[in-house]
Amino acid sequence: MLKVKVCFLFLLIACLSMQLMSCQENPFIQGEIMYENFCATCHMEDGKGLKGLIPPLANSDWLKNNQDILACSIRKGINDPIVVNGKTYELPMAGVTALTEFELANVINYINQAWGNDYGFVQINEVRDQLDACNARD
């Protein structure tokens, strides 16, 4: 009987730790799905972009340093040339308008943490404030 119990306990621990591990691997499932649907054709699944045409999001200093305008940049697009990791990119990015505030927050959290990035987290209300600010500017 004891043997069965120990076995069961062992299984339980194994299951739990597996779940934890998969949790750590990807805490932003919705963000990842949004990314694949709305961003990956350009920025690619691995976040590396495309040569001199589309800038990388993986290890991007622009992404790191422009957290305060990120929600607006994604929603409204980026029209002026920008410099990412020392390289100038000129192709404008059209605004991705299909995402709700909630989905925007999820996709931002995803790109901030994917591919070894570690650029923090946003809350939905921060995204809302950002959008209000840029909506007011327009």
Partner: peptide
């Protein structure tokens, strides 16, 4: 704005 970058890659 859609599939071209992926195809080009």
């Amino acid at each position: 704005p859609t599939i071209c970058p992926k195809v080009k890659q």
